[in-house]
Deep mutational scan, measured.
Amino acid sequence: RKEMTAACTPRRRIINLTSVLSLQEEINEQGHEVLREMLHNHSFVGCVNPQWALAQHQTKLYLLNTTKLSEELFYQILIYDFANFGVLRLSEPAPLFDLAMLALDSPESGWTEEDGPKEGLAEYIVEFLKKKAEMLADYFSLEIDEEGNLIGLPLLIDNYVPPLEGLPIFILRLATEVNWDEEKECFESLSKECAMFYSIRKQYISEESTLSGQQSEVPGSIPNSWKWTVEHIVYKALRSHILPPKHFTEDGNILQLANLPDLYKVFERC
């Protein structure tokens, strides 16, 4: 597991931080080997919608929660590849102030007048994250320049770009939802926020969305749709870069829909 690298990086740093090793061990302890084997050997059937997909393993048909699986995938990559990410360069710098204002204007932020003026909160978020810029760049390849612009994001899987519609809320939550006081809790909560931002979430995906850094293989055609990215990038990574937690067998994120021999018997009677 320590050699797990989802995106190509030129050289690998050895990380011996106790906090990170502890988080890696927790993933191992909570892992479910049968689910790992199923995901490793599954045959992708198709997307139901951005949140759900169908896959077959041996004779069984499964309904998989793409949102939760991708979130767990990105969390584990962030923990196992800690401080070893490439950088996704933004085509132009994104001012943190503008991103924070967009987030505060969104109902998702939960902002009320009692929280104070949005401009003041946005300025605080910019200054707060600028103070964390060195650590964010060093460990997470999340790059913020001296003017308070976001200029780079971590490359977690080759050819995958997170849904940038979720970027404003991500920046807001970096400042408000991460435990910045304790090292282990900081790395864990920061990785979880980043994983949620990178995950496939239906509120940020339309039929026209593209999450891939590449064009489709047909010359002159439109960019790959999110469905292509889910199948050929995300579920491909799920084959080798995730140890599913045991609770996925109990919380409805992986559901067995049918045993195909039983279905064949039904059709034979028709």
Score class of each variant (00 low, 15 high):
L99F: 14
K60I: 09
Y198C: 07
S91I: 11
P117E: 10
E193T: 12
E127G: 02
F82G: 07
M135I: 03
I171H: 00
N49R: 14
R201Y: 12
L96P: 00
G31T: 10
E71H: 03
E123L: 15
C194T: 06
I171V: 07
C194E: 01
C270Y: 15
H32R: 07
F248P: 10
A103F: 15
D98G: 03
C194K: 00
K184P: 03
E134M: 04
E37L: 13
R269Q: 03
K236A: 13
I169G: 14
Y204K: 06
V45Y: 01
S141R: 07
M101G: 02
A55L: 09
Q24E: 12
E108I: 03
N253V: 03
T67G: 08
S189N: 04
A55F: 06
Q256M: 07
Q214P: 05
P154S: 00
E146D: 04
N16C: 14
L164K: 05
G46C: 03
S106F: 02
I205H: 07
R1Q: 11
L211T: 06
N159V: 12
I79R: 15
L174Q: 00
T176S: 05
F197N: 00
I242H: 14
S22K: 02
V45D: 10
R201C: 12
K236F: 15
E146C: 07
L17D: 07
S240T: 09
Q58N: 07
Y264N: 03
T59S: 15
E250D: 04
Q24L: 13
L64K: 01
S240M: 10
Q51R: 10
L54M: 07
A237M: 08
G213T: 10
L17G: 10
N16M: 14
Q256R: 11
Q256E: 09
S225M: 12
P93F: 02
L17K: 03
C186Q: 02
T67Y: 14
D98C: 12
N149S: 04
L90N: 00
E92S: 04
D115S: 03
L99P: 00
P244M: 14
L255I: 06
E143D: 08
C194S: 08
A7W: 15
I242L: 07
A237F: 12
E193Q: 12
L211P: 05
W111N: 03
K192I: 08
V48H: 14
T112Y: 15
A6W: 15
L61Y: 00
Q51H: 13
A122H: 01
G86N: 06
L155D: 08
C47S: 05
H241G: 12
Y62S: 04
M135Q: 02
I233N: 13
K192M: 10
F248N: 14
L174M: 10
V45I: 04
E217C: 07
G46W: 01
Y139H: 04
P50Y: 03
V48P: 09
V266H: 15
C270W: 15
K60E: 15
P162N: 00
I151Y: 06
S43P: 07
D105P: 01
L150H: 01
L156C: 09
K246G: 12
E268P: 12
P223S: 09
Y160T: 00
L156E: 00
S22F: 14
D138T: 03
V234I: 05
N65Q: 13
W228K: 10
I151G: 06
G148T: 04
P93G: 08
L54G: 08
R173E: 01
L54Q: 12
I200H: 10
R36D: 14
Y139V: 04
E3V: 11
P162I: 01
N259T: 06
V34I: 12
V20W: 14
N28A: 13
E25D: 07
C270H: 10
S109Y: 14
R1K: 05
L61N: 01
E177F: 15
H57W: 11
A122I: 09
L96R: 00
R239P: 07
S91G: 06
S240G: 08
F128S: 02
P168G: 03
W52G: 02
L255K: 02
G120T: 06
L243E: 09
P261Q: 07
L156Q: 00
Q214I: 11
A53N: 01
R201P: 06
L63I: 05
L255N: 04
G148L: 04
S216T: 10
A100S: 09
L121E: 01
I15V: 10
E92R: 08
K236W: 15
G120I: 15
S191A: 07
A175H: 01
R201F: 12
S199V: 11
F187P: 02
V178M: 01
P168H: 06
E193L: 02
I242G: 14
S43I: 10
E119A: 04
E37Q: 11
I79M: 07
E113D: 13
Q214G: 07
Y204H: 06
L211Q: 05
L260A: 03
A7D: 13
P117A: 15
Y198F: 07
S225W: 13
A53R: 00
L164W: 04
P50G: 11
D158T: 06
D262T: 09
S240Y: 11
L64N: 03
L243M: 13
E146V: 08
V87G: 08
L23Q: 11
L142G: 01
E114V: 10
P168T: 02
M135Y: 06
L99Y: 03
K131Y: 14
E127K: 02
L90Q: 00
L172S: 01
T9W: 13
S212G: 04
E193S: 08
N41P: 15
P95S: 04
E250R: 12
P162M: 01
P163G: 08
T66G: 01
I144S: 01
N259L: 04
I171W: 00
Y204E: 08
L64A: 11
R11Y: 14
F248H: 06
Q215Y: 10
T5K: 10
R89N: 13
